[in-house]
């Protein structure tokens, strides 16, 4: 079965499984554990104009069926990324998606502009949904006008395929999705982590150095499937779905909810090769549920049921 996915502006994934931003470093870290070339693509960690230090540790905390993180988008800045990380990425034979972040609209624009000149970057993922930074990040993702402004600024400086990663931490994520599509987004990726918190009972304080964090992992999946469904039936662009995927069946669930491709993240920490296993199993899982192609599966559940 052909697992290729055709996306806007000529972006082609060899299969629909992309490593989710923030879980796969800048590429080289996992390259000795998993055949990166076998993946549909990799989304590298969020990149800002200047280096960001990240949040104080502890930065992760396990919850039942989930993982809270408060990394805080630690990254070396776009110049260091270009100098130090793109050389490795040049050796990777799959799609590379740069996740971009900023405190202001201008900062998003700056990173997009710098990466526009980098042929190795196949697409951008505009991150307006990280719950772990004080300014920028999620604040752009909670307001349709601000989300529009960020995407509009990015669109002005790049002709690369652009997806916007939306937040589940708003009442109506599809309103944000519609807004960024109106501003020129080619795709929507959904969802980022759900904001959460845990208390370290022994220490009598928040478990994370950043106090609150983003919840990922299987606990998130029903929330994510619902939001992908709600977004996919409202926007006319491809949706890249994610949130707690652990198996090929989970991938199919996202496809049927309307996703054209998916991102896989937290499970990689337990099973570095799980993404490759999912890719291997996907054709037989599609067949088992009666689908002859990815396209048949995508949105298969959108028609069913009564949309309220």
């Amino acid at each position: 079965m052909n697992l290729g996915v055709n996306l806007p502006r000529g972006l082609v994934l060899k299969n629909p499984i992309v490593a989710a931003s923030g879980t796969f470093g800048f590429g080289p870290e996992y390259s000795s554990y998993v055949d990166v070339d076998a993946l549909g693509g990799i989304a590298v960690k969020g990149i800002s104009p200047d280096p960001w230090p990240g949040n104080p540790p502890p930065r992760v905390w396990e919850t039942p069926a989930g993982l809270l993180n408060s990394i805080g988008l630690q990254n070396p800045g776009v110049d260091a990324f270009i100098q130090e990380d793109i050389p490795f990425l040049n050796s990777v034979k799959t799609v590379v998606i740069a996740n971009i972040i900023g405190h202001t609209v201008d900062e998003y624009r700056h990173v997009a502009q710098r990466l526009q000149r980098e042929p190795r970057i196949d697409a951008l993922e505009v991150n307006i949904s990280c719950p772990n930074i004080k300014e920028g990040g999620m604040s752009f993702g909670s307001d349709p006008d601000q989300a529009f402004a960020v995407m509009h600024a990015v669109r002005e400086v790049t002709d690369k395929p652009v997806m916007v990663k939306v937040s589940p931490n708003v009442a109506e994520p599809w309103v944000i999705a519609q807004s960024v599509v109106a501003a020129g987004a080619d795709m929507v990726s959904a969802i980022n982590t759900v904001i959460g918190m845990a208390i370290d009972l022994k220490a009598r304080r928040p478990a994370l150095g950043g106090v609150t964090g983003g919840l990922s992992g299987p606990a998130l999946k029903p929330i994510a499937v619902r939001m992908v469904y709600e977004i996919a039936r409202r926007v006319g662009v491809p949706v890249i779905g994610m949130g707690g995927i652990q198996s090929a069946e989970d991938v199919l669930e996202f496809l049927m909810a309307g996703a054209k491709a998916v991102m896989v993240g937290t499970i990689t920490f337990q099973h570095p090769t799980r993404m490759v296993e999912i890719i291997r199993e996907l054709p037989s899982v599609l067949q088992r549920y009666g689908f002859a192609s990815l396209d048949e599966a995508t949105g298969a559940a959108l028609a069913g049921g009564v949309a309220l």
């Binding site: 923030g22 879980t23 796969f24 470093g25 870290e29 996992y30 554990y33 960690k45 990240g54 104080p56 540790p57 502890p58 930065r59 992760v60 905390w61 993982l67 993180n69 990394i71 630690q74 990689t268 920490f269 570095p272």
Partner: peptide, 17 residues
């Protein structure tokens, strides 16, 4: 010791100043 994620340097969870 620090709370750790991936263990191989990708997730930047287990940092120390």
């Amino acid at each position: 010791e620090q709370r750790m994620g991936c263990g191989i340097g990708a997730c930047l969870a287990c940092v120390v100043a």
